[in-house]
Design a binder for these strands. Structure first.
Length: 413
DNA sequence: TCTGGGGTCCTCTCCCTA
DNA sequence: TCTGTAGGGAGAGGACCC
């Protein structure tokens, strides 16, 4: 395996940096994505530590490599990040900009191959098997993509090239920032085995703790652990998965257009709230948000769940499955409210509430119309509100209970 | 030290039904 | 009709990912 030259400015694709035969899977990952997008509009900040994150009760969403040198990393509480890097420039996130750049980047990927599986706004797997004859080897294609992303979107990305998704993803991480790494088929085990167990996909803090307790510190240790012992310690699914990944075995293919399985929204309050009326208003607002997103995606769901996080961070969820799928805010809210009332929380201080709809299927899927079901009703009313929002920009029709909320001071914004 | 928001997947338990 | 059991769906919670 070999690391390619770092591409600091666009140029003609160079020769393949390693043997990429039989390595059609690319993992492309934008470097410090949110921060890089912000630097496009504020180039005077280039070279300085920049942190993108919320102001109140927030965490770091993205940080430039200059900030990372001070120990700042994503998901770190903002208060801690500011202490570690007090001279960093802190920018509030602009998600609309990130979505727009992401759409452009995904467009570049799809111009190379239709087999694109987005994982997040800033990364995707590509299967370039069908593009090799047209564009060259996988490594050349990776280089081409890197150049196009810089030229079209003004940000850099890193690319991992391998025979499986898992190894490609690890490779892109090792290539960061602004690099490309090929892991040849016959070097996968050499590449994986020295890595710490935390590099295995699905190993977070808790699982790492268990593995270390078992005396397993590297991927090699995991690979040589008998699979039944791993399964006893971690459960059958995770144990079997780690046993396979530790030897580089990963059967998953690149799946384009994987349908969503749930749609949800949640809100952390600037300060804890204990007023049930304010909680109900928030549930209504979140139900509205979820319903709008369901309708715009042409989806309906059968199971409504709520999430309640108490001031001490303890979290509970409750769910109810409806007889029929819905995309109507009124129905989602009625279910969410019923679940909330069922908890009988009184005035317990809450820091977060969330609403989620699961069990999704296309809104136009055939279903039985109930005898007393009105063919036209709330759904049509809410669709009319959607059209008004599209036409006039923003949400112009709201439930009356959301319009007057002068006592709702706990909410962010 | 103080922990977002959007998701997916897995495990365990309970309940219903055959 | 009663009992034991197995399987599936639903619900709750936890871990993980970006």
């Amino acid at each position: 395996m070999s690391r390619s030259q770092q591409l600091h400015r666009p140029g003609p694709p160079s020769g393949p940096p390693g043997d990429d035969t039989g390595c059609p899977i690319l993992h492309v990952d934008m470097d410090a994505f949110y921060a890089s997008v912000e630097l496009r509009t504020r180039p005077e900040l280039r070279g300085r530590p920049v942190i993108v994150g919320g102001e109140v009760r927030g965490v770091v969403l993205s940080a430039t490599y200059e900030a990372r040198r001070f120990g700042v990393h994503s998901a770190m509480p903002m208060a801690r990040a500011r202490r570690l890097c007090p001279h960093a420039v802190v920018i509030a996130p602009h998600f609309a900009d990130y979505s727009s750049v992401s759409a452009g980047v995904m467009g570049i990927f799809r111009s190379v191959t239709p087999a694109v599986e987005p994982l997040a706004l800033d990364e995707a797997f590509l299967d370039v098997s069908g593009a090799i004859r047209r564009l060259g080897s996988p490594a050349r294609i990776g280089q081409l993509i890197r150049e196009r992303v810089v030229a079209d979107q003004g940000i850099t990305c890193s690319v991992g090239v391998a025979s499986t998704k898992y190894v490609a993803k690890l490779a892109s991480t090792r290539a960061k920032p602004d690099g490309l790494l090929v892991v040849p088929r016959d070097k996968v085990v050499d590449f994986l085995h020295p890595l710490p167990v935390g590099a295995l996909w699905g190993v977070g803090d808790k699982t790492q703790e268990i593995l270390i307790r078992l005396g397993l510190r590297t991927v090699r240790d995991v690979a040589h652990m008998p699979q039944p012992a791993l399964e006893r310690a971690l459960g059958s699914a995770l144990g079997a998965r780690l046993a396979a990944l530790a030897w580089g075995r990963d059967e998953r293919s690149v799946v384009a257009d994987e349908p969503d399985k749930s749609v949800g929204a949640e809100e952390t309050f600037a300060t804890d709230i204990d007023d049930p009326a304010a909680v109900r208003r928030e549930l209504l607002r979140l139900s509205e948000r979820v319903a709008v997103r369901l309708r715009s995606a042409g989806l309906q769901g059968r199971t409504v769940s709520i999430k309640i996080r108490f001031a001490n961070f303890h979290t509970v969820t409750r769910a109810r499955t409806l007889p029929d799928p819905t995309d109507i805010a009124r129905e989602i809210y009625a279910t969410a409210r019923g679940l909330y009332e069922g908890l009988q929380l009184g005035r317990a201080p809450l820091r977060l509430v969330g609403v989620r709809v699961e069990g999704l299927l296309p809104a136009d899927a055939p279903r039985q119309l109930l005898l007393d079901e009105r063919a036209h009703g709330w759904r049509e009313a809410e669709q009319a509100a959607d059209r008004a929002a599209q036409r006039f920009g923003g949400r112009v029709v709201w439930p009356a209970s959301l319009i007057e909320q002068s006592d709702d001071r706990g909410r962010k914004e």
